Amino acid sequence: MIPLLILIVVSSVYANNCSYIYDEIHYTRNSILTIKGLPTNLAYNPKNNDVLFTLIDLESLHDDNVQTRMDQYVLRNGEPILIDNVRGQAAAVDVKNDKVYIASDDGIGILNASDKVQFANLKDEDVVQLFKPVHSDDLYAVTYPNNEIYVVDTIKNEKRRVEYVPCAFILAVDAEDNVFYECDSKYVKVLLNDFQEPIEFVGIAKNSARALTVDESNRVILAANDGLYWLKPDNIVPKKVMNLDFVPSGIVFNEDVIYIATNGMIYKYSNNCV
């Protein structure tokens, strides 16, 4: 009778651990960070397994009389490390050239081995978002206050504005240089490469988009209030690939591992169910 009880308990734990489904595949979930504030703008560095994130102070966010406080962190070996020589607002990893870019209110810097930021591009610009495609040397940056997107050539140190995108609060760029974005907390759109008119995705509620990223298969994934969606450049109807029981604030992939942030927490979803 004891072996049967053990089997039942083990089966129950296994079922609970593998109850998270992403794109019809079962995942386990565990928390890798608990912290006061809202972690967002996740980035992953496969060279050293660092998870980078921006931490927003919610009290300052809700106080119209003060500037919102944001700090940039590196999550390394389970410990959050503050990058304390800039007012960091986003991060992006250049895997090809082994660089980590940090967006700040004074331009874009590169994170050195001592976890300090050294200036690189867009000096004196207030940069609030970054995205680094894996297929090129371009770095996409969003500047405040107009939230315009610029493409920075990291080799030539030149920049150009992305035309036909009025503004972007979140963005991602796929391997075909299609720009996915959300503007003014409204609807998610894609500007196809060499086109002039953005296309709006349907079925996603207004004000529900929270984060965009590209997975290992070059699929653009949107984290929205009710779950994750696969945004296809040739189909205005997104495919829902995961339900969430919380409101996400950031997302990034590492092969078959998914990191998703929410208020006070970063979760790690692992595809280790057999």
Rank of each mutant, 00 (worst) to 15 (best):
D64Y: 11
V127T: 01
M70V: 14
I25W: 08
E59V: 12
R87K: 13
V95A: 11
I25K: 15
V134I: 10
Q72I: 09
K123Y: 11
F119R: 14
A91M: 11
F53V: 02
N85T: 07
D50V: 03
L130Q: 00
N30Q: 14
G107E: 00
P80S: 09
K123N: 10
K36D: 15
N121S: 14
D126F: 14
V74K: 07
V93S: 05
P46V: 10
E125M: 09
L61D: 08
L52N: 01
N85M: 07
V66Y: 04
D64C: 05
A91E: 12
I81S: 07
D71H: 07
Q118C: 09
A141V: 00
D94W: 04
A43M: 07
D106E: 08
D106P: 01
R29L: 10
K99A: 10
V86H: 03
N45W: 05
T68C: 07
G107H: 00
N65I: 01
Y73G: 05
H62R: 13
F119C: 08
K47L: 15
A141W: 01
D137S: 13
T40F: 07
R87E: 13
L55N: 00
Q72N: 08
V93A: 03
I32K: 09
N49A: 13
V93K: 03
H135D: 08
H135L: 07
S31P: 08
N65V: 03
P133A: 02
S60A: 00
K96T: 15
Q89G: 07
V100C: 04
G37A: 03
E59M: 11
I35P: 01
G78V: 10
V128H: 02
T68N: 06
D63V: 06
L111A: 03
L58A: 06
L52H: 04
D105E: 02
I56W: 03
V86Q: 04
V66S: 01
H26T: 12
F53R: 00
V127D: 01
I32N: 09
E79S: 15
M70A: 14
I102T: 04
E79D: 14
P80A: 08
R76I: 12
Q129H: 09
E125L: 05
A141S: 00
T40M: 12
K36F: 12
V95N: 11
D57N: 08
H26D: 10
P39F: 05
F119Y: 11
G109S: 03
D98T: 14
R87N: 15
D63S: 06
A120M: 05
R69A: 12
T54E: 06
H135C: 02
N41V: 06
P133Q: 02
Q129D: 09
K123S: 10
I81M: 12
T40R: 13
N48W: 10
V128F: 04
V74S: 11
I81E: 09
D84H: 11
D94A: 06
T40E: 14
D71N: 13
L111F: 03
A43L: 06
L82Y: 10
T34N: 15
P133E: 01
